[in-house]
Measured scan of single mutants.
Amino acid sequence: TIDEIIKALEQAVKDNKPIQVGNYTVTSADEAEKLAKKLKKEY
């Protein structure tokens, strides 16, 4: 679900690790936030 994706992003940001979500690779908190907002609009 979208919530699980967002939790995974938040965890990756805390661990400061890049995370791959679908076609996106998120490497920073800023990118994670942008991706989360984008995904919320889509779903």
Rank of each mutant, 00 (worst) to 15 (best):
Q20C: 13
I6H: 01
V26D: 07
E10N: 06
V26E: 08
T25L: 15
Y24N: 12
K40A: 10
I2K: 03
T25P: 12
K41M: 11
V21K: 03
Q20H: 10
I6K: 02
L39V: 02
P18H: 05
Y24Q: 13
K37T: 14
K14H: 10
D15C: 08
K14V: 11
N16E: 05
A29I: 08
V26I: 10
A12D: 00
K41C: 12
V26Q: 03
D15L: 08
N16D: 06
K41D: 15
I2G: 02
K17R: 13
E33V: 08
A32N: 00
K40T: 08
E33W: 05
G22W: 04
K38F: 11
E31F: 04
T1Y: 13
E42K: 10
A36N: 02
L35I: 07
D3N: 09
E10H: 06
N16K: 09
A29C: 11
E42T: 04
E42F: 09
T25R: 04
K40S: 08
Y24V: 15
K17I: 13
A29Q: 06
K34R: 12
N16A: 08
I19D: 01
K34M: 12
T25V: 15
Y43Q: 14
A32Y: 03
A29V: 08
K17N: 06
D15K: 04
K40G: 06
L35K: 00
K41T: 13
A29F: 05
D15I: 04
K37F: 00
E33C: 14
P18I: 08
N23Y: 02
V26P: 11
Y24D: 12
Y43F: 13
L35G: 02
K38P: 00
T25C: 15
K37W: 00
L35P: 00
K40I: 12
V13E: 02
A12C: 12
K17D: 02
K34P: 00
Y43W: 12
E33K: 12
Y24I: 15
A29M: 08
S28Q: 02
I6W: 03
K41Q: 14
G22N: 07
K40E: 10
E33Y: 04
K7M: 12
Y24H: 14
N23D: 15
E10T: 09
P18A: 11
D15R: 04
Q11Y: 02
D3R: 10
A36H: 05
D15H: 07
P18C: 15
A36D: 01
A8L: 13
T1E: 10
V26C: 15
I2D: 02
D30M: 11
S28G: 14
Q11H: 04
I6D: 01
